[in-house]
Design a protein around this nucleic acid. Structure first.
Lengths: 129, 129
DNA sequence: GCTTGACCTTCCAGTAACGGGAAGGTTCAT
DNA sequence: ATGAACCTTCCCGTTACTGGAAGGTCAAGC
């Protein structure tokens, strides 16, 4: 498929997809016309990149995560190390999002209807750190 | 307190804290010596910024969230709108992190000990989208 | 077959969100 | 009073894109 469809299916702008190719994250085929040609697995990777980027992982971390899949020759111990260090980080992110969620929920429900004089959102936010 | 201590307490590099001042996110006082002087509430804000940035919110989204607290004159309906649209996004992020977590967990436990021939991490990753 | 519009290509320049490091002022302990 | 450890501004570099120009390709309709 062309880059437009890959963009539509992955949610990533075509510009970004080309950029990811520039920095070596994905290697699409080329048609005789010079157009990039993406397969379903490319779309999987792009979708994965879209997600993990939006969750606060750097492009380099995404590259590591992708490598877990792609580098079939990598030793399993390495895979475990990288994956479990990411697991720790993911758990932290989930905890923090949950706390942020609770705080916003409070803001929506507790400060109802009228001007909030002293909604303690920031105190809430930092109390649970 | 000086920027070094504010950095230590918030987890943000001093460079980043100065940058956040440049773009108008925080307004510390200045001492007679020209040094920036941070209060506890500044540290709260910085800690909040540190967190929400690492969770994939843009600086501009963080600015909105901070504004929920700071702009006391804002109408409550606006607060609710912004906060609840962020709530939706937070829920999505939590869902995606949970799925990513499950996939990595699988990678760590299911592909144990030896070279993985066909660890379907990407299929897993995209299946649940 | 020829145009037209929606694709695609490369390239170059700009932006956002920092980070490194120079050049110099301040503070504090020895 | 001198060195270490802070702090200041300024400027340049990097990461991860984003916009736009200039031009090639393709499928549909006349």
């Amino acid at each position: 498929m062309n880059i437009g469809e890959a963009s539509g299916r992955s949610g990533l702008p075509a510009k970004t997809i080309r950029y990811y190719e520039d920095i070596g994250l994905i290697r699409p085929d080329r048609g005789g016309n010079g157009y990039r040609d993406y397969g379903d697995d490319d779309v999987h990777k792009l979708r994965f990149l879209h997600r993990s980027r939006s969750l606060g992982f750097s492009v380099d971390e995404c590259r590591q995560l992708l490598a877990l899949y792609e580098d079939k020759s990598r030793a399993s111990a390495d895979v475990k190390d990288i994956a479990s260090s990411k697991l720790t980080e993911i758990d932290r992110k989930i905890r923090e999002l949950t706390e942020l969620r609770r705080t916003l929920e409070y803001l929506v429900h507790a400060c109802h209807g009228n001007a909030r004089p002293d909604c303690p959102i920031l105190e809430e936010l930092s109390e649970h750190t």
